[in-house]
Amino acid sequence: MLWRIMKQIIDFEVTECAQMGPNYALLRLRPLRGEMPSIEPGQFVQVEVPNSKTTYLRRPISVNYADRHELWLLVRRAGAGTNALCNLPEGARLNIMLPLGHGFSTDVRGRALLVGGGVGVAPLRMLGRRLLAQGVEVHFLLGARTSADVLQLDLFRQTAETHVATEDGSWGHKGLVTAHPILQEPWDHIACCGPMPMMKAVAAIARERGIDCEVSLENVMACGLGACLCCVEDTADHGNVCVCQEGPVFNIKRLKW
């Protein structure tokens, strides 16, 4: 890319903190001043966590939706920091650094399967909309433990054909996403975001069948800017590289798994 969007630190106001069952919340945010910079599907933000006694660092969260006046973050209650974010009241202020990292490739043709697991579905609808606008045939495949963990299903269905797999069979196909029959169809491209075992399994299938595939990693991060070198992934071409800077999205060709 010859040009790039400058990183910024912006104060936001929480316009809504919608609980999505006991484990997730959707934060809808509005910049207090000015407009949002443009954000690519799969990029992330670093959120300062207010009112959290036991946490210290910012939390990296992938962007669920963004336009010039609004930012959505889909957050899983994974620990004290994300818990505090999910409990924010309407009107709370949040300091956010964005946009960060490199998102999904949009240089895609033909048929694309976008596979999400749990809260990993967060960045996929933005990507799907972008690919649809380019004339790509897009399908979503969403995996979750139970129907309660299938997030934003209605929004996905409004966007493109959506397939669901739940481990307990309470919604859609029973079993893991990797056992869903839709994966057996011919695909030109797979984009995947979810728990590590799921991404590794999807990557293995893509590799075996020669399908171009990208995954979004969530290695533990400190700075989010490529300075501290904490979040590295060991790549086939350049050894340890920062997930926050060269990722979070990687083509599986670069990964050693």
């Binding site: 210290y56 290695n219 533990v220 501290c228 060991d234 340890n240």
Partner: peptide
């Protein structure tokens, strides 16, 4: 230097422990 293998960082109360290893 490639530094140490991942994971290299853990958040602790009012701090963090890193093991980057001079990458």
């Amino acid at each position: 230097r490639q530094g140490n293998p991942y994971p290299r960082m853990v958040e602790t109360p009012s701090g963090m422990i890193n093991a980057v290893g001079l990458q």
